[in-house]
Amino acid sequence: MSIVAQMRTQLKDSMKARDAVRTNFLRYWIAQLTTGSGEEVADEQAIKKMRAMLKEARGGQTSFSPEEVALIEEWVPPTLDRSQIGLELAPVADQIKAAPKDGQAMGIAMKSLAGKPVEADDVKAVIAELRG
């Protein structure tokens, strides 16, 4: 079942429970994750969009309430922490260290981490530690 379909199911339950915060949250995200033609965006795109909004909310750049931020966190899978990123980058650590520029090192790291849920800032921090 897609994320939007799951949200629609939960919307009915939140309306019955008269949970205004959850109901408004679900309505907002169903609208955000549905195209003008009524098609749902792919789950990968939905998670990417929600993760971006979560990052903005944590930085104080949105008007989401703390309750809404907590609801977004329920829908977004957790990202790898710095120690897990370090373990994932261990096979390419020598290539990262040998890269002449930080941007090239980041490119090597991101190729190695493709498809894994990571925050770019965490990857940058791990690369900085590796490059010393």
Rank of each mutant, 00 (worst) to 15 (best):
Q95W: 05
V4Q: 10
G107A: 09
G36H: 08
T34F: 03
L54R: 00
M7G: 06
T9Q: 15
K97V: 13
I47N: 05
Q95L: 14
F25E: 04
R51Q: 12
I47R: 14
S2Q: 11
R18C: 10
D102E: 08
V118A: 02
P117A: 08
K16C: 04
L87E: 15
T9F: 12
A114N: 09
T34V: 11
L54P: 01
S112P: 05
R58T: 01
I3Y: 01
Q61R: 15
K12S: 14
G38V: 03
T34Q: 11
V69C: 03
V21G: 05
Q6P: 00
V21M: 07
R131E: 01
A17D: 13
E39P: 00
A125R: 13
G60Q: 07
E67L: 13
Q6C: 06
A20D: 09
L11N: 11
V41E: 13
L26D: 08
I47A: 06
G59N: 13
D121F: 02
I96Q: 06
V126Y: 08
K16I: 13
Q84N: 04
A5S: 15
V92R: 02
V69E: 08
A90I: 04
D81M: 05
E56R: 13
G36P: 02
K116E: 02
R51M: 07
Q6L: 10
